[in-house]
Design a protein around this nucleic acid. Structure first.
Length: 207
DNA sequence: AATTGGGGCAACCGCCAGTCC
DNA sequence: GGGACTGGCGGTTGCCCCAAT
C-alpha cells in the first residue's frame, strides 16, 4: 500500500526531518528511498528524500560560495557537455548537479552574457530520449556558449575520430557575438561517438 | 517603517531507463 | 515478456531574503 502523492509533505525540510533522513541513511544506506516513509515517521516521498540527501545532507557536498576555479571548471565543462549537469557536477568535487545548475543559471549565465533561453520545447519527447541523452550535448540554452581555444582543440581532436567540429564558426548565429574567440555549438555537434565519451571520461579538465 | 521587486536557491515535476518480480 | 517500482536527470517553480524606494 503506497501513500497517495498528496499525502506526502512538500516544501522546505525541517531539522527534525533531516535528522530522521540522516538516521535512515546511516542504518539502511543510500537506497530504497521509497521505504523511508514506511520505516520512519518521515512523511516525504522517496524522490524528495533522495534529493534532500544528494543536495544537502550528503557529507561530500560542499556548501558555500563557488570559487573562481570551480567557476572556470564549470564554464569549460558546460562548453563541452552542454546542460548535462550531472556529468558536469561529477567533475566538480563536492558540488551537486542542482548546485551547478543553479549556479550556472543565476551567476555564470550573467557573467558570460548568455541570455537564458527558457525552453518550453523540452527535449523531443519519448521516442528517442535515449538518443537524446547522448546527442543532447548541445541543448538550446547553450547554443551560444563560449568555448576556450584549448578545450575546443582538445574536443576537436577527439571528434576527429568521427564527426568533426568543422564549420562550427560558420554555424554561429549570424555573429551574435562579436568576440572572435567565441564559438558556438548547435545540434550538429553530437556526443554520440564512443570515442568522445571515453574522451570525456579521461579528460583532465583542470588546465 | 512599510512596501515592493528581484535575485538566489531549495525543492518539485515530468520524463525516461534500468531493475525487479 | 511485461508491468510495477525505483533511481536519475534536466527544466521549472515558488519561497525567502534583502536592497531599493
Amino acid at each position: 500500500m503506497t501513500k497517495a502523492e498528496n499525502e506526502y509533505k512538500k516544501g522546505l525540510w525541517t531539522e527534525e526531518e533531516d535528522k530522521i533522513l540522516l538516521e535512515y541513511v546511516r542504518v539502511h544506506g543510500r537506497r530504497h528511498w521509497n521505504r523511508i516513509s514506511k520505516v520512519t515517521c518521515l512523511e516525504r516521498n522517496g524522490k524528495s528524500c533522495r534529493l534532500r540527501w544528494m543536495n544537502y545532507l550528503c557529507p561530500n557536498v560542499k556548501h558555500g560560495e563557488f570559487s573562481e576555479e570551480e567557476d572556470d571548471l564549470i564554464i569549460r565543462l558546460h562548453n563541452l557537455l552542454g546542460n548535462r549537469w550531472s556529468l558536469i557536477a561529477g567533475r566538480v568535487p563536492g558540488r551537486t548537479d542542482n548546485q551547478v545548475k543553479n549556479h550556472w543559471n543565476t551567476h555564470l549565465c550573467k557573467r558570460l552574457g548568455i541570455t537564458k533561453q527558457t525552453r518550453k520545447h523540452r527535449v523531443p519527447s519519448k521516442s528517442n530520449r535515449s538518443d537524446v541523452k547522448r546527442t543532447e550535448a548541445v541543448p538550446s540554452s547553450s547554443t551560444c556558449g563560449t568555448l576556450s581555444p584549448s578545450s575546443y582543440q582538445k574536443g576537436a581532436e577527439v571528434q576527429g575520430q568521427g564527426s568533426s567540429l568543422n564549420g562550427l564558426e560558420a554555424q554561429c548565429e549570424g555573429g551574435k557575438h562579436s568576440d572572435p574567440s567565441l564559438l558556438f555549438y548547435d545540434q550538429s555537434f553530437v556526443l554520440d561517438s564512443p570515442h568522445l565519451m571515453e574522451f570525456f571520461d579521461g579528460f583532465d579538465l583542470i588546465m
